[in-house]
Design a protein around this nucleic acid. Structure first.
Lengths: 173, 173
DNA sequence: CTGAGTGTTCAGTATAAACTGAAACATTTG
DNA sequence: CAAATGTTTCAGTTTATACTGAACACTCAG
């Protein structure tokens, strides 16, 4: 399986499962399958191999690899005397998780919070006290979430420690 | 605006913004718009009104109301001497948030974790040590997330307190 | 300079998800 | 029972998103 050919059923089943599971991380099917391929492959893989093994177009593979690289969950590597680009997965699973979380906060959460704040600043709901109050609470909730997320994600080791602490402090599941 | 007619621009703009923003919560556009309508409306609203004001079909409105009720973010109420069903938003924003979080964990996270565990239990990656290790770490990460989420969401007041504490403890943003 | 090998881009197409509109059915009550 | 309301279902349509495939761009060896 290490040769990026998905010869073993274990590997190929993992790739497909991860493909559907990946939506949780915010990846689309192709990105998740590619990521899974890297997770079960020890050696660096190149673009054509990805496209061939997963049965997707070169174009799609190229876009997905670029995106995964933007997210920081795979890295480009080179073999000496070889012009081709090879890629490997970020080795640390926790780092992978943090990178994705950071990226998603930046892309999805922050704009949403901005949007909400603008809305509340510009629009006037003062003729409806209940509404006014609800929207203020909403803003407060988002702000709290923002603070917590920001602190957890600002620094990987600190965030990781905080999560470990949290796990120990909370009542056992 | 309180008469569920979206006469003011403030209200209608909020509804549309919330509609696109709602994906963050895991709602689709219609559900999010309906939820927003309830957020900016003080009086109970009935199905036909929802459909008319938001310009969506009765069928869609009915399904969305049902779903929102399942999530626990709106409630059915009745007016005396009136046979029709009316709905209002859950008044507490934090409760709304928790209900959605609980529901999404149950629907999305838990099955994904199960899936991963089954996969790791059944499949054998022992011929590839790096892969084996990565997948074990992955399982550990998911389990930690599961523990923390489970504890935070098990009880609303406790969870809320924990988040408040967390906010105070973490370095200021 | 040329062209073979490789990586990127994008217009068009396919796929999946949401929504409509209408009908069938269920339930309540005057 | 008939009228009013609520729910469910579903074939057809719209809309958003992902993906393809071919053209284009870049690099480098000869």
């Amino acid at each position: 399986m290490s040769s990026a050919s998905l010869t073993t059923p274990a590997a190929s089943q993992f790739v497909e499962s991860w493909g559907s599971l990946g939506v949780l991380w915010g990846l689309n099917r192709s990105m998740a399958r590619i990521h899974a391929l890297f997770l079960v492959t020890d050696e660096p893989i190149e673009l054509d191999q990805v496209a061939r093994v997963l049965n997707i177009s070169r174009g799609n593979a190229s876009m997905c690899l670029k995106e995964l690289r933007n997210w920081g969950v795979i890295q480009r590597v080179h073999k000496t005397g070889d012009r081709q680009d090879y890629y490997v997965a970020e080795p640390d699973v926790w780092t992978t998780f943090f990178r994705i979380a950071v990226e998603r906060k930046k892309r999805e959460f922050d704009p949403a919070l901005n949007n909400l704040r603008h809305l509340l600043a510009e629009e006037d709901f003062s003729d409806s006290p209940k509404t006014q109050k609800r929207l203020e609470e909403m803003e407060e909730l988002f702000s709290t979430a923002n603070t917590i997320l920001g602190a957890l994600l600002a620094n990987e080791t600190a965030g990781r420690k905080a999560l470990g602490l949290l796990k120990r402090v909370l009542p056992k599941s």
